[in-house]
C-alpha cells in the first residue's frame, strides 16, 4: 500500500490538521479549486493592524490538499499581509519537506486560497474608504 510518496510532515499535517473551521464574518475570504477536479479550498482570515491574527480553512481533497491547507495556515498566523502575499506554492511544499511531483500542481492550491483571502480583505478595505 503506497503512501503516494508523502513525507512524514505531510502525513502528520493530514492526520492532525491545524486551524480547521470557519470564521464568522471574516475580514477576508478566499476560495479556489473545483470539486470536479477533486480539490476545493476555502480560507478565512481575521486581520488586525495588517497582521493575520486568525486563519481557518475547509478543504475537500486528497492528502496533500489537506496538508498544504493546514501548513499554510500555520505559516501565516501572526504574519503581516505583504509578507503573506509573497508566500508561494513552492514555499508551502518546502515547509512540508516536499510533495510528490504529480501533486505539485493540482493539490497545492493553499497559497492561492490564502492570496484570494488577502485580496478579498483589501478589496473590502477599499470599499470602506
Amino acid at each position: 500500500m503506497a503512501q503516494i510518496g508523502y513525507s512524514e510532515k505531510v502525513l502528520e499535517h493530514f492526520m492532525n490538521p491545524r486551524n480547521v473551521g470557519t470564521i464568522e464574518k471574516p475580514d477576508g475570504y478566499g476560495k479556489v479549486g473545483n470539486p470536479v477536479c477533486g480539490d476545493l479550498m476555502e480560507m478565512y482570515i481575521r486581520v488586525k493592524d495588517d497582521i493575520i491574527s486568525d486563519i481557518k480553512f475547509k478543504t475537500f481533497g486528497c492528502g496533500s490538499a489537506i496538508a498544504t491547507s493546514s501548513m499554510v495556515t500555520e505559516m501565516v498566523k501572526g504574519m503581516n499581509l505583504d509578507k503573506a502575499m509573497k508566500i508561494t506554492r513552492n514555499d508551502v511544499a518546502d515547509e512540508l519537506d516536499g510533495l510528490p511531483p504529480q501533486k505539485m500542481h493540482c493539490s497545492n492550491l493553499a497559497a492561492d486560497a490564502l492570496h484570494e483571502a488577502i485580496k478579498d480583505y483589501k478589496r473590502k478595505k477599499e470599499v470602506k474608504k
Partner: peptide
C-alpha cells in the same frame, strides 16, 4: 463531499486498514 485518497490515507494511518 469527500475524496478517496484521503479516505485511503486515514484508514491506513489511523486504523491500519488497507
Amino acid at each position: 463531499r469527500i475524496e478517496g485518497e484521503s479516505i485511503l490515507l486515514n484508514m491506513n494511518m489511523r486504523y491500519s486498514i488497507q
